[in-house]
């Protein structure tokens, strides 16, 4: 099993719901993003293409971050999810430097407020103390909502099908641009899309073998 995501850029409208739903679900402090939306344009007037690219951790099969981690805090699970065991992270940031996609963040200040100088609100306190506590001074990143998937599996739900066993950004997308499933299963939702629509990963030349594919 190798969990992966397919992002359909034809559907995506660049609304930032993935980015913001993730911030809410993980009570992420300011300036920390597990997923983001990148925009640019190609071509020259009037033949212009607006480029919109939602990005998140690629959960690479050949993950540079796993290789460079000196403590083994960054690990790859059987299902392909790359995650950080923050209790083992020493905060050397080699993984951040090594990730060619720059999808990792050093959580230096977990107490940074949403409203600077106005203290932590209830939203932040409950989020950071109960919902998703983050270990300060370690490296954090997207883990495909691993905790949620595991909980869903325990309830007997299907990953990528049932909402409670699907990453938050996939659920939040108003245009269903995201699909989540098992890349190893040739008949899965994701494998079929990749095959039919010629899905491609980012920077395949680097040999990282990402588990996030894009469709044009």
């Amino acid at each position: 099993m190798r969990l992966g995501m397919v992002i359909d850029r034809k559907r995506c409208i660049g609304c930032y719901s993935c980015q913001i739903s993730c911030k809410a679900a993980h009570a992420l402090p300011p300036d920390v993003f597990f997923g983001r939306v990148l925009v640019s344009e190609t071509g020259t007037y009037p033949t212009v293409t607006k480029q919109i690219l939602p990005v998140l951790c690629n959960h690479c099969k050949e993950a540079a971050c796993v290789k460079v981690c000196p403590t083994g805090a960054t690990q790859k699970r059987e299902d392909g999810i790359v995650y950080v065991n923050s209790e083992e992270c020493v905060g050397c940031r080699y993984c951040i430097v090594a990730c060619p996609y720059q999808m990792r963040t050093y959580n230096s200040d977990g107490n940074k407020e949403y409203w600077p100088g106005q203290g932590l609100t209830e939203l932040e306190r409950v989020g950071r103390e109960i919902l998703y506590p983050l270990e300060p001074n370690t490296v954090i990143k997207c883990n495909f909502c691993m905790e949620k998937l595991d909980e869903g599996l325990r309830k007997g739900l299907k990953i990528g099908i049932d909402r409670e066993a699907t990453p938050t950004c996939v659920n939040a997308c108003p245009v269903k641009a995201r699909t989540f499933g098992d890349l190893d299963d040739p008949n899965s939702n994701v494998s079929k899309l990749i095959k039919e629509r010629k899905g491609y990963p980012l920077h395949s030349e680097l040999g990282t073998e990402p588990s996030v594919y894009y469709l044009d």
């Binding site: 990148l38 640019s40 344009e41 190609t42 212009v48 996609y101 920077h203």
Partner: peptide
């Protein structure tokens, strides 16, 4: 790092 998204314009 090389960009993740094309931007030629």
């Amino acid at each position: 790092y090389s960009p993740l998204i094309p931007s030629s314009a």
